[in-house]
Design a protein around this nucleic acid. Structure first.
Lengths: 224, 224
DNA sequence: CGAGGCATTTAAGAAGCTCTTAAGAACTCC
DNA sequence: GGAGTTCTTAAGAGCTTCTTAAATGCCTCG
């Protein structure tokens, strides 16, 4: 949820009547995109960034549970709500343990669905949305960095996004592929990342982003 | 959830029978602390760090909804599940919009409650799997070694692969042939291994890898 | 509506790091 | 002491990353 707009929602539902209906019910609160099978859902889930997903349990081509596991295994942490006709407790347990964040069984109440999605997409700690990186602090909202000594550098959207992604998981090594999937079109060539890393190093400091040769880039505590 | 222990759970429930019962049901999966009214719940919620909270809707001294709002207003972002006798949709909506992350109405199923709490406390960026080797720890993902005293050494792909293979089966003696088949082209000459063993010994310590004369190399507890 | 400026993307040579080979020195075991 | 094994060092080939520059696209302001 990077802007003040409605949160984006990916709805994966094969029922030709129910899909558009749910979509319409949620449109006041969410910007809904409908996928009618698991394969399309997986593609959209992997290639675009969503604030939440609603996934039907029983889907053609690729089952809802398999879809969730596939998304989670690719590192997609987006909140997911499963919607299903199966209301038995062990079905709920299976769904939640597969990686879903919430579970509702049909027939469901539209108001409750919307409230649960609001809860899933809600973000806490709005005021201090800054990320500390070494001697610097990233203000993602204002797309700027402030050093502890007061100087301020403004970043472009891509620069800020790249830095924010890297800083979101310190110590983790992101491959160029990871970063392209998170920030660019998957068709872009990996070299784009190198260029932006270079821009950031020039703007901020040579040492904010560490290169891990053959793997990718990383932010973390300076060592050795 | 900072450790590998059970997640910590704050349960705020005034019912003298239900509180201990829920507590007992969840103990296998969570480390549960019980508070019997809203005031105690607020104090514990503010002064300690919890992986999740389960809060009863109707509480003496301080209502459950008021408690949640108070916690949220103080910047506490811990996942909260409301447990209540009120199952009407607008009650659920009120609870969720007050800042709760999930809502279950009594009578509830213990298995489902546990599954929902697992979903709430699940983290998607688990700390990287590390392998202990003597005083060192190998982070294969980042291809680096960190000593117990904090220093960090980065390894190349071959170095990390060799070390990981050796460490995967402590005490086992790997022949050069074993290692070449696992890490290099089978046509490579066995001397490659010697070179990398040397690199690792220089980077980390002379004693991480033990030579077994005439056989190969080994990692294991230092004996004699 | 067009010009200018800024952000983004592509491309290509330069620089740097890793891998691999090789050869002599040092060591081990008999 | 000698044969075989292991250690150490060095250097070139090959690959990855850095850096620069220019092309493209987008938005704004005149």
């Amino acid at each position: 949820m990077t802007t003040a707009e409605r949160p984006s929602l990916l709805l994966v539902e094969d029922d030709a009547a129910l899909g558009p209906l749910i979509s319409e019910l949620l449109e006041p609160d969410f910007s809904v995109r409908l996928a009618v099978n698991g394969r399309d859902g997986l593609h959209l889930g992997l290639t675009q960034s969503w604030d939440a997903m609603v996934i039907d349990r029983g889907l053609p081509v690729m089952d809802g549970l398999a879809l969730i596991k596939a998304l989670r295994s690719k590192g997609i942490a987006t909140p997911i709500l499963i919607l299903t006709a199966l209301g038995a407790t062990d079905e709920k347990v299976r769904g939640l343990d597969a990686g879903a964040n919430d579970y509702m069984s049909k027939p469901f109440d539209a108001m409750e669905l919307a409230a649960r999605l609001r809860a899933l997409t809600r973000t806490y700690a709005p005021p201090p949305a800054t990320l500390g990186i070494g001697d610097w602090e990233l203000d993602a909202g204002a797309r700027s960095m402030r050093s502890v000594y007061g100087s301020v550098v403004t970043l472009t959207a891509k620069e800020a996004g790249l830095l924010e992604t890297l800083a979101s998981e310190p110590e983790r090594v992101f491959t160029r592929e990871d970063l392209i999937n998170a920030l660019f079109h998957p068709t872009d060539q990996p070299g784009v990342i190198d260029t932006y890393v270079h821009h950031l190093r020039r703007k901020i400091s040579k040492t904010v982003i560490r290169t891990v040769h053959g793997l990718g880039y990383q932010i973390g505590n300076p060592h050795d």
